Computed example of a mutant assay.
Amino acid sequence: MDEDPLQILEKLLHLKSVVLRYRSFDGRKMVCSKGGFPQLCNLGISLLYDLEEWIVEEGSMPCLRTLSIWYCEKLEELPEGLKYITSLKELKITDKNKEWKTKLVPGGESYHKVQHIPSVQLHYRGEE
Rank of each mutant, 00 (worst) to 15 (best):
P106R: 11
L82F: 00
H112G: 02
W54D: 01
V31E: 06
I8Q: 14
I85Y: 05
I8L: 13
E10I: 00
K11C: 03
C41E: 15
P106G: 03
W100P: 05
K74H: 14
F37Q: 09
L6H: 00
L20I: 14
P62H: 09
P79M: 08
E109L: 10
R28L: 06
L51F: 04
L13Y: 01
K89H: 11
C32K: 02
I45N: 02
W100R: 04
E3S: 08
S46Q: 15
L78N: 04
E109R: 15
I93L: 13
L104I: 06
L91V: 07
G27C: 11
T94F: 00
E53C: 05
N97W: 08
S33H: 12
K16W: 07
C32P: 10
T86F: 07
K16I: 00
T86I: 13
V31R: 13
S68M: 14
E52Y: 01
P38R: 03
G59F: 02
R125K: 15
P38L: 05
Y111E: 07
E73M: 05
G126C: 14
K11P: 04
G108Q: 11
P5S: 01
Q7S: 11
L13P: 00
L6V: 09
S60M: 06
Y49R: 14
T66N: 07
V105N: 05
V105A: 08
L13H: 07
K101F: 02
I93R: 07
L9H: 06
H116S: 00
E3C: 06
G36D: 11
L9V: 08
I93T: 05
R125H: 10
E80H: 09
G126V: 15
P118S: 09
L12K: 07
P5H: 02
V114W: 11
S87K: 05
H14R: 06
W70H: 13
E90L: 12
E52S: 07
E77R: 11
S17H: 08
G108W: 10
V105W: 08
N97C: 12
E58S: 12
P79N: 02
E99A: 07
Q121H: 12
I117Q: 10
